[in-house]
Simulated scan of single mutants.
Amino acid sequence: MSIVSLLGVEVKNNPATFDAPYEFLITFECHESLQKDLEWKLTYVGSATSNEHDQELDSVLVGPIPVGVNKFEFRADPPDLSRIPNNEIIGVTVILLSCSYDDREFVRVGYYVNNEYTDEALQLEPPAKPIIEKVRRNILAEKPRVTRFAIKWDSEEQAPPEFPPDQPEADLNADGDQYGIEEEEEEEEEEGEGAAPAEGEDAAMAGADDTAGPAADDDAASEAGSEDIEESEGEDEEEEELEAEEGDDMEMDDAAPANGDQSHPKQPAQPNPDVMVH
């Protein structure tokens, strides 16, 4: 449990010019008596790519701290332009308001800050060297980012547990017990399961080939049967009647003349001209 709880931060004089001081109204609660003061500090992030341009704008010691709710105003100077690259002055940056006890930081509040020109022409074509008197600063006070840290206060009993905890058993794991082994085995099982349908498909296709063989033989037998029918047209009437019965089984129209005249070979039936075939 933290001995000091931050209840709220009100950002004053916002928006303001770039060279105006920063002003905050800070409210916090102290749950127990403290032997030392609290140190509040404001830091300006001068570059998004390097912390070399960060600068502490101001710091203040607050104490002695009475138990209960406390409130005070914190005022800090604007950043030093000579420590900020020219291409980093205009745009979005961050300020950090932090509080420490006995050089141990326990709370930090971060705000986005947008620095932009008030002149529309300068917004469209910003000069290489910024014109500071025409730059406006706007702190996004509605969306602070608060981070809290567990620290030791005045006694060892108030110290937080060691983190991360000691894990001596971690060195006792077998050599094959490595992180990610289970994931790899699961991936291999999934790959094996994914290959099974492919083999099933191949088996199904092979079965189709097996079934295709007799079908081709049936077609060959049908063709052979049709050839036998044509060759038997010149034989006697008994074979001709047998031929007509086999033609009915094969869904072929009987083209033999009704009077039993065998002088002409049997012709295939002609389609009806009134029927449209699609």
Rank of each mutant, 00 (worst) to 15 (best):
E241G: 02
A269R: 08
R75T: 04
E185V: 10
V60R: 06
Q262K: 14
T27H: 12
R104Y: 01
K71V: 10
P64G: 02
D175V: 06
Q262G: 07
H278R: 09
E29C: 05
A203N: 11
D261E: 09
P271F: 11
R83I: 03
C99Q: 01
A20R: 07
E52L: 08
L7Y: 06
N13E: 12
P257G: 07
D210L: 13
L96F: 01
P78F: 10
A174L: 12
P64D: 01
A203I: 03
A141N: 09
G213Y: 14
L140S: 14
A196E: 15
V146D: 03
G200Q: 15
I90D: 06
P79N: 04
A215I: 15
A141T: 09
I181M: 11
E10H: 15
Y101G: 05
V94P: 01
L97V: 00
T147W: 05
E190T: 05
D202Q: 13
E157K: 12
L7M: 08
T27S: 15
D103A: 07
M276F: 12
P268Y: 13
E156I: 09
C99A: 07
I151L: 04
F28Q: 06
F24G: 00
N114T: 14
P130C: 02
F106C: 02
G200R: 15
V146L: 06
A258W: 08
D177F: 04
V146G: 02
N114V: 15
C99E: 03
E133F: 01
G194K: 12
K134F: 06
P271H: 11
V275S: 05
F149Y: 15
S98N: 02
G91Y: 01
P64F: 03
S59D: 09
Q158A: 07
H31P: 00
M252R: 12
Y111H: 05
E88P: 00
L242N: 11
A150V: 04
L6H: 01
F18T: 03
P214I: 07
I89T: 06
A121V: 05
P273Y: 08
E185W: 12
L122H: 04
E185T: 07
N115P: 03
E116F: 11
P126V: 02
G46N: 02
P271Q: 06
D202Y: 10
S226D: 15
A76T: 03
L97W: 04
G176Q: 04
L140M: 15
P214M: 03
T147Q: 14
G234V: 12
S98Y: 02
G200Y: 08
C30T: 05
F18Q: 03
D202S: 13
H278V: 14
E190W: 04
E184I: 14
L124A: 11
E125Y: 10
D219L: 14
I181P: 02
